[in-house]
Design a protein around this nucleic acid. Structure first.
Lengths: 190, 190
DNA sequence: CTGTAGCGAAACGGAAGCGTATCGGAAAGG
DNA sequence: CCTTTCCGATACGCTTCCGTTTCGCTACAG
C-alpha cells in the first residue's frame, strides 16, 4: 500500500493541468491540442497520454482545479456581506484564470456532457453561497419575505456575468453597492 | 452599374452562411473548418474562398445574419411589455439558432476583436430595447425614479443568460412574471 | 546500492485541413 | 444566340496534430 505518490507524478500532473488552463484560455476548447499543452508545460507528449486518455479528460480535470477561490464573508449585515461577495465575483470576472477560461469552458460544455456537468456543479456551488446568505437575510428581515432567493441571487450576479460574456466589458467592482441598492431596498436594519 | 447581383452569387452566400451557423453551433469556433462548411452547404470550397478570405471573415458575416428576431411589444403597461420582452428572450435562449451558436460566438469573440465588436453590438442593441422600455416606465411611475435603468435591464435579463450559459438549464418562460415581480415592485398603475 | 518507474525527446505513419489551381458545365444576361 | 461569369468537383503540396513507440537518462524507493 503506497500512502504517497511518486513526487514526479504529482509534479507532472500539476504543471500539465496548469498549462492546459493556459492554453484553453488562449485558443479555446476546439483549438486546444495536446502538443500545445505539452510544449507549454515543458513536458513530453507521452507524459500526458500516460495520465489522461485524451484532450477531453484532460480538460475536465483542468476545469476541476478551478474551484472557487472565494472567501466567505462572515462579518457585517447580510447586505454588507452580499456586497463583499459580489465584489469578489466582479473582481474574479476580470482578472483570474477562471475568467480567462470561462468562454472556452462554456463552449466546451456545449460539446461534451461531462464538461457540462463539471461546470454546472461549479456554478451551482457558487450560486449556493449567495443563496444561503440571502436566505439568512430573509430571517433577519433584510430581504423581503416570500422572495425567491434563488432567482434573486441570479438577478444580483446576472449583471456581472452579462457584462463579461455578452457585453465584453468589465463590471466595475465599485458599482456593486449601487447594484445591491436597487435589488435589496436599503431598509434600515431595525 | 449593376443594380442587382447574379442570383447565383446571392444564393451561394445564403446557403453558405446558413451552413456556417449550423457548423458553428455544432463544433464551435475552434472546430469549424471551411471544408465542413462547404460540405454542409453542398458547395465547393473554392466558392467559399471566392467570397471570403477565410474562416474568420466568414464567421463574422454569419453572426451578422443573426440580427435579433424580437418583436417590440406596443400594447399594455410598461410592466406588461417588459414581461413580453423577457418572455421572448427566454424562448430565444432555448430554441433558436442564436442560442445554439451563442457559446461558440462568445468563445470566438474572445479570440478575435472583430467578432467581439459584432457580438457586442448585437448585445447592446438588444439591451437598448429593454432600457428604452424601462425609461418609459420611469416617466409613467412604474419604475422608481432615480433607477439606473441600464443596470436594471441587466438584472432582468441576467437570470435568463446565467441559466443558459452558467447553469446550462432553461429559464422557463412562465417564470418571467415572478422575475419581474421581484424587481419591479407591482405598484398599482394608479 | 540497486532495481525500477517515470521522465523528455524524438520519430513514426496516418488523418485532416489548409489555400490554390484547374477543369468542364451550366446559367445568366446582353 | 453567344459570351461571360459563376459554379462543383477534384487534385495539388504543405502543414499540423494525432496517438504510439522507442530510447537513454535520472530520481525515487526499498
Amino acid at each position: 500500500m503506497e500512502s504517497t505518490v511518486d513526487p514526479r507524478v504529482e509534479r507532472s500532473r500539476r504543471v500539465i493541468l496548469t498549462a492546459a488552463l493556459d492554453v484553453l484560455g488562449e485558443v479555446g476548447y476546439g483549438g486546444l491540442t495536446i502538443e500545445a499543452v505539452a510544449a507549454r508545460a515543458g513536458v513530453g507528449k507521452s507524459t500526458i497520454y500516460r495520465h489522461w486518455t485524451g484532450k477531453l479528460e484532460l480538460v475536465e480535470d483542468a476545469i476541476r482545479t478551478l474551484k472557487a477561490a472565494i472567501v466567505l464573508p462572515v462579518e457585517g449585515t447580510v447586505r454588507e456581506r452580499v456586497i463583499q461577495l459580489l465584489r469578489q465575483l466582479a473582481c474574479n470576472a476580470t482578472d483570474t484564470q477562471w475568467s480567462t477560461c470561462l468562454p472556452a469552458i462554456i463552449d466546451a460544455a456545449e460539446r461534451d456532457p461531462e464538461v457540462l456537468q463539471v461546470h454546472r456543479r461549479l456554478a451551482l456551488e457558487r450560486r449556493q453561497v449567495l443563496i444561503d446568505l440571502l436566505a439568512e437575510g430573509v430571517k433577519t428581515g433584510e430581504v423581503a419575505p416570500g422572495t425567491d432567493v434563488g432567482l434573486l441571487a441570479e438577478c444580483l450576479a446576472g449583471p456581472i456575468i452579462v457584462r463579461r460574456l455578452m457585453l465584453h466589458e468589465p463590471f466595475e467592482p465599485d458599482l456593486v453597492p449601487k447594484l445591491v441598492d436597487q435589488l435589496l431596498p436599503p431598509v434600515p436594519p431595525r
